[in-house]
Design a protein around this nucleic acid. Sequence first.
DNA 1: TAGATTTGACCATA
DNA 2: TATGGTCAAATCTA
Length: 281
Amino acid sequence: MNWHEQGNMKAAMEELTRGQEQATRLQSMLKDMLPPENPSGPAAYLLIEVLSSFSKALSLLDLGRSAEANSPSSKGGVRRKMQSPRRVSCRRRQHPYTCRTTFLKTIEDGFTWRKYGQKNIYGAKHSRSYYRCIHKHGRGCQATRQVQRTEQDDSTFAITYMGEHTCADATKPRDQPAPHDNSSGSNTAANDRRATPPSPALGNPKQECEEEVVSNHSPSTPSSSQLLKLPELSAFEGSSPPMAQLMEAVSKQYCGLEMEFDPAEFKLEDMFELSQDEYNC
DNA sequence: TAGATTTGACCATA
DNA sequence: TATGGTCAAATCTA
């Protein structure tokens, strides 16, 4: 990679980082604005998707740089312990559930999880934690997730969701807040998570893991640019100056990635296509 | 004291 | 056989 490409990549990472920070702020503000009985409305769900896109883009760029740095042609440096090339995750145990990985700064996603295991992963710097939905027994919810800090950024979590939440009508988080189930009387790993979340892990039932990718091309998942134009979010415009400013800033971050392509045609996920396979399960 | 977390052991898979 | 995923007893915590 020449200096020009490196410069572009660095600039892209900086833009993405800024966008991520602003989206995080927006998420924080949104949390304060949403009613306690439905803290995870559609806008919150969309923000999770936006943050996920930022995180993924950053990770991809970082991976690209790492690969470059570790390539045989790159110079010196301390050789790190060889990473396992195995890509097992959800393929190891072959179940019919969906599998999807997101990269977030927080492990909180609105669902209530119970940690049931932790493993040191061969060749990985960080251990992996295993969570299952707290309603596994009460409602037979089969959703599980694996949480692991990324190698590139200790503050970023790679969260792999498997299975779907059946404990609540997660397919309609926008309209019908699921009834809270506090029968367990306590919360878990994230302590203050609600039981009425959007599902970052929702996918088509019975879809094979390798078919499930993090892609905003999905008809059910609007693209990032679309997300920012949805009524729920646009409703904030004008109602709250800081919110409107943040909205604009986040929107600009997406557009700010334009370098040598048509911004009218560009979608963030286009950046992922070449290395999308890295995120398939 | 009930529920959550930790952790070693066991099992499934590649 | 090595490794990842899950179980369940022990331990912790509110």
